[in-house]
Amino acid sequence: MIYFYAAMAVAAWLFLVGVYGIVTSRNLIHLCLCLVVVQASTYVLLTAVGYRPGGIAPIFADVKQTDKAVDPVIQALMLTDIVVEATVVALLLALTVQIKKKTGTLNPDKVNLMRG
């Protein structure tokens, strides 16, 4: 039970600190990595929601099938999300590279895309 509230608190901390990093970021690459931290907060939350105290991993290759397994649905959600997150961050990094080429700066406060 205590792990549940601890994980909830860690998820909130990661979310808030990640958004703080995004708000105060002076560098678009730094901003991308802050977004990774924000996304990690959802993983921590989902892990805690899916976990059952005393549960085993939902893989029955070596153990007999049992009721005491943790929730596989939430793990499936996280699994695809992690891979998709990486490609989305790659897209953002590609945008960052292009912004640097076009405007000559990585500082989001100084980027003025309307000017070309």
């Binding site: 990774v36 993983y43 899916g50 549960g55 943790v70 996280m78 891979v83 990486a86």
Partner: peptide, 19 residues
Amino acid sequence: LMFFIFQAPDVALSQLVIG
């Protein structure tokens, strides 16, 4: 490591290679 401890080896493997 956190995924592994919380009984999610599939997710741990995914996070390991990605993250």
